[in-house]
């Protein structure tokens, strides 16, 4: 790349970064503003205060925020785990086996993911109340699976199709059972795909608001995005924006940690060297 190209790319990258990160920076600044400072119209707080954060962990918003954080982490991790395990098996079958209805599964998966969430939440609300799933963890995990499974199946199928079939055949000739060939050869090679899928699935569940607010009523299962809507200021005349911003910053942290952790696993080109080609 010539110097000219490099400079061009750097300028573009900086512009994109500013565009993407400015709202985050704005939220960060807001989270350090005192309630009176919120409408100052300035980017930086006139006085840096930590009261929004202390409200979340020791103050008035504590009983709302901490249980919902626990709910969000627990529900999203479980939903992600189930989705990835099921999708791995399903995608493997789709990529490797020839069975009737293969196309149908992929199409249905796509159709399910296109269905608007808002139209399902009301019937689900009624159903969940009747069968006792309303305001419980499983009551959210199940609808989250409907969001995360389709995309997981699609991405993982693409990953499995990249793995040369001969590797599995070689393993079988070398003395492996089908299961051993799957666990010792295919899964290690598909790991980057599995981690990528897991992160995507986790984000989808983590960011959900409609199911979170529609299918919960107490801190028994209410996730963070829904809980933020219930934040109030110290009085009805006070804007809770400071506390909401602080909470938004807090809930971003697990996501950042997750990406940093899995980044190492997402090594592209792991199958390089398997076969000539």
């Amino acid at each position: 790349m010539s110097t000219k190209h490099k400079v061009g790319w750097a300028v573009v990258s900086v512009l994109v970064l500013i565009y993407a990160l400015f709202p985050v920076a704005s939220i960060l600044m807001t989270s350090f503003k005192a309630p009176a400072d919120l409408s100052s119209g300035k980017f930086l707080p006139t006085q840096w205060v930590g009261e929004n954060y202390s409200a979340l962990f020791v103050g008035s918003a504590r009983d709302l925020f901490l249980p919902s954080l626990r709910n969000s982490i627990g529900i999203c991790l479980i939903a992600t785990f189930i989705a990835v395990v099921l999708a791995t098996l399903c995608a493997y079958a789709i990529a490797r086996l020839d069975f009737p209805g293969k196309k149908l599964i992929l199409t249905v998966a796509l159709a399910v993911s296109m269905f608007p969430v808002v139209s399902i939440v009301t019937p689900l609300f009624n159903l969940w109340r009747q069968i006792g799933l309303y305001d419980t963890w499983p009551g959210l995990i199940i609808p989250y699976l409907s969001l995360t499974l389709p995309i997981s199946i699609w991405t993982l199928t693409a990953f499995f199709q990249q793995i040369p079939w001969d590797l599995e055949r070689a393993a079988q000739v070398d003395g492996a059972t089908t299961w051993q060939a799957f666990t010792k050869v295919i899964v290690p090679l598909a790991l980057p795909g599995v981690f990528t899928t897991a992160i995507i699935a986790f984000f989808i569940a983590w960011n959900d608001f409609v199911y979170g607010i529609g299918l919960t009523s107490t801190e028994a299962a209410r996730p963070v995005p829904a809980a933020l809507a219930f934040f109030t200021g110290a009085s009805q005349f006070e804007d809770p924006a400071g506390a909401i911003s602080a909470a938004a910053i807090i809930v971003t942290i697990p996501v950042v940690i997750l990406v940093l952790l899995f980044q190492r696993q997402i090594v592209s080109g792991l199958t390089q060297g398997a076969v000539k080609g």
């Binding site: 001969d166 393993a171 079988q172 000739v173 070398d174 060297g273 398997a274």
Partner: peptide, 17 residues
């Protein structure tokens, strides 16, 4: 295949990367 005790060299080598 695993019960036949034969070993095979594949055209594309099929090494475990």
């Amino acid at each position: 295949p695993r019960e036949r005790n034969l070993s095979m060299v594949f055209q594309n080598y099929a090494l475990y990367p």
